[in-house]
Write a protein that binds this DNA or RNA. Structure first.
Length: 547
RNA sequence: GCUCCCGUAGUCUAGUCCGGUCAAGGAUUCGGGGCCUUCGACCCCGUAACGCGGGUUCGAAUCCCGCCGGGAGCACCA
């Protein structure tokens, strides 16, 4: 009560102490008074009889925070994927966040392929340039310009010279293991004392090919006592003889990520760097270099790691499996790549809302896929036709089935008459999902939209056909099972999330579906017709999307 | 081990910078009900949170200190 008064009237705040004493007294006086009398007394005081209910708060719009110092129309952002595979949900976040800011402020969005030479394990591969371009397109992200780091290598050399001139770098000739050990112990390598002009000579020798890969690096001179061992004398340039898919063997001296971005974030006029927090140490490196050279660089914003609980696949594993052919390319559902989500009928709009809802939070999060599914359902449910599908079918012959129901008309969507109807051949022989028949054995059930029947009491494993008994027609509160009329049943092949194919039967109407159309198999989930399925052909090939 | 980052319901998130209408909002999940010939959608209702411990203050999710827990980095990868 005290804090409420103080909040309402700031003038009272200096007198908080007195006020508290006064309140204590009043409250003590009122303690024994019955509630009804209190209400009366309140009314005579002229105040509102009952406190007005608090107005509901406005729905919090998931807005991204403002970009510091952003000038409308002048924002320049960058996407910097390494071309080593298809884009996944984490990349999606990078795409959507950057795009969202470009839309908010106006400006430019650059796609800069981070294709420095990589390593033996992490190779740049040609096919991935187009793959990633395609993924961006798919995600609805159209960069204003596409650049390749590999075209800009030579532009980095003058910056190296500037750093050397400041006496802030040296050519180190330690083997990698020794370098690592010295760094961990905070011990200087012999070349650390090198004078700038000597470094200049050594740098030229690097460029001229005097050293083999692994024999020399250009290292930044920071502070060997730096509390963060990761920051001690980081490598700026190294040698590599690997062939680059775009520039071949044109360069042997390659910049490392932090240095290359310290250069390009400035030279490309990037206004804000938005990236995952796995790259925070790069911020410090870039700032260090900018301070050293007296140039101004953009601010950095980060977000934490995002994991979808069901998507446990490591990127490297996805890469291997795709490469080896164990996966069905980058659209295999097991990769959880953007392509695979699209294939499953998850719209990029839904994915965008989903990833944007996490804002720029630095927390590492693990989100159940259900959250994404819910977002997608909102978008597709109302316009998705319903169809019947049964997995692992059991033939059910219904004794006493009424003849007049041999053909029946069903709506395509229970709540959307505008989606029309379809005509279905029904009975007396049906297919039901084995799991349903077993679970409901001996019970009366409702054939959805049709009639009630009693299932046989036992259904031994492997039974192909069972007999059921017609009981009544009126709709009752019975378990409702979906069914497929035997006459018009068509084989359906469902690609599941684990990469396996499940066989089943669908109603005849799905033969009329279009490739890439999304339909809902009732009580099963949303599926999408495969893009390369020949319309009208059997089996009907679909990919499982989500419940 | 060292460095940095992060801890709000089952799961995400708003609020934290700048202490007070925050008796903490939203989404999703879950539970109940309604509607409905799906276990889907929709509508209504409900459960449920400031990691812990100190301190500052009239007042702490918010500021300070300590602890605990989680993540990332410590590559001549990106």
């Amino acid at each position: 009560m005290l804090s409420r008064l103080l909040a309402t009237d700031p003038a009272l705040r200096p007198k908080a102490g007195e006020l508290r004493d006064a309140l204590t007294t009043i409250v003590a006086e009122l303690e024994g008074v019955p509630l009804a009398e209190l209400t009366d007394r309140l009314a005579t005081l002229g105040g509102p009889v009952a406190a007005a209910p608090r107005p509901p708060k406005e729905a919090a719009t998931a807005e991204l925070p403002e970009l510091p110092g952003a000038v409308p129309g002048r924002v320049v952002l960058r996407l910097a994927p390494f071309p080593s595979g298809g884009l996944h949900i984490g990349h999606g976040r990078m795409l959507f966040v950057n795009q969202a800011y470009r839309e908010r402020y106006g400006g430019r969005l650059l796609l800069v392929f981070d294709d420095t030479i990589g390593s033996e394990e992490k190779r740049v591969e040609t096919e991935f340039f187009d793959l990633i371009l395609g993924d961006c397109e798919l995600a609805g992200v159209r960069p204003d310009e596409v650049l390749y780091k590999s075209d800009r290598i030579a532009a980095h050399y003058p910056w190296a010279v500037r750093v050397i001139e400041r006496g802030a770098a040296y050519v180190c000739r330690c083997p990698p293991e020794l370098l690592r050990e010295n760094r961990a112990r905070g011990v200087a390598c012999p070349e650390r004392a090198q004078r700038p002009d000597a470094t200049q000579d050594e740098w030229r020798r690097m460029l001229d090919g005097a050293y083999a890969p692994g024999e020399a690096t250009l290292r930044l001179r920071t502070d060997l006592a730096d509390p963060d061992p990761a920051f001690r004398d980081r490598v700026l340039f190294r040698l590599s003889d690997l062939e680059h898919p775009r520039v071949g063997h044109r360069y042997r001296v390659w910049p490392l990520l932090e240095f290359s971005w310290a250069v390009d974030d400035v030279e490309l006029g990037i206004s804000h760097v938005l990236r995952g927090k796995d790259l925070v140490i790069e911020d410090r490196m870039e700032r260090f270099l900018w301070d050293l050279l007296g140039v101004e660089g953009p601010p950095f914003l980060h977000w934490g790691m995002l994991r979808v609980r069901e998507a446990k696949v490591a990127k490297s594993k996805a890469y291997r499996e795709v490469r080896s052919g164990a996966y069905d390319g980058w659209a295999d559902p097991r990769t959880w790549s953007l392509r695979s989500l699209d294939r499953r009928g998850i719209s990029m709009e839904a994915l965008r809302e989903f990833t944007l809802s996490f804002g720029l939070s630095l927390t590492d999060i693990e989100v159940p896929a259900e959250t994404l599914y819910a977002e997608n359902r909102k978008r597709i449910d109302a316009r998705t036709p319903r169809r019947s599908f049964v997995a692992d079918p059991v033939k059910v012959e219904v004794d006493g089935y009424p003849f007049d129901l041999a053909e029946t008309t069903l709506p395509n969507h229970p709540d959307r008459p505008e989606l029309g109807t379809r005509s279905v051949r029904a009975g007396p022989t049906f297919y039901l999902a084995r799991a349903d028949v077993v679970a409901q054995a001996g019970r009366e059930i409702r054939l959805k939209d049709l009639v009630n029947v009693r299932l046989p009491a036992t259904v031994p494993d492997g039974t192909a056909t069972v007999r059921a008994e017609f009981t009544s027609r009126p709709n009752q509160r019975l378990p409702r099972l979906q069914w497929v009329g035997a006459e018009a049943a068509v084989p359906v092949d469902v690609l599941e999330l684990d990469g396996r194919h499940r066989q089943g039967l669908g109603e005849g109407a799905i033969l009329g579906a279009r490739p890439e159309e999304i339909v809902q198999f009732e009580r099963v989930g949303f599926v999408r017709l495969e893009k390369d399925w020949a319309p009208g052909s059997a089996p009907v090939r679909v990919v499982y999307g989500h419940p």
